[in-house]
Amino acid sequence: MNKTYLIAALILTGLLAAGCTSQQPAGSATPTPGASVAATPTPTVVPAGAAVSQGDLDALRQDIESRQYDDLQDLSNSS
């Protein structure tokens, strides 16, 4: 029984960690540890001084995509 509780606790702790990680700023290009296969890390284009990573591009795309520009309506049709 205790083993079941331990497994449940581990799963929930993982979910908690995932929730906390999800609120990192959208502009943050820090890759999630362990998200990619260890043998094939996200490559950074050389030379190092001018580095751009796939993570940088993905984060920027997501930040641009997330913007919503909602219009406003007046009250003349509803009063």
Binding site: V45, V46, P47, V52, D56, L60
Partner: peptide, 19 residues
């Protein structure tokens, strides 16, 4: 955002020229 895209474009251009 436009500045950031331009910055990445410039960096990738430098890299592209170097290789």
């Amino acid at each position: 955002h436009a500045d950031r895209v331009a910055e990445f474009e410039a960096k990738l251009r430098t890299t592209a020229q170097s290789v």
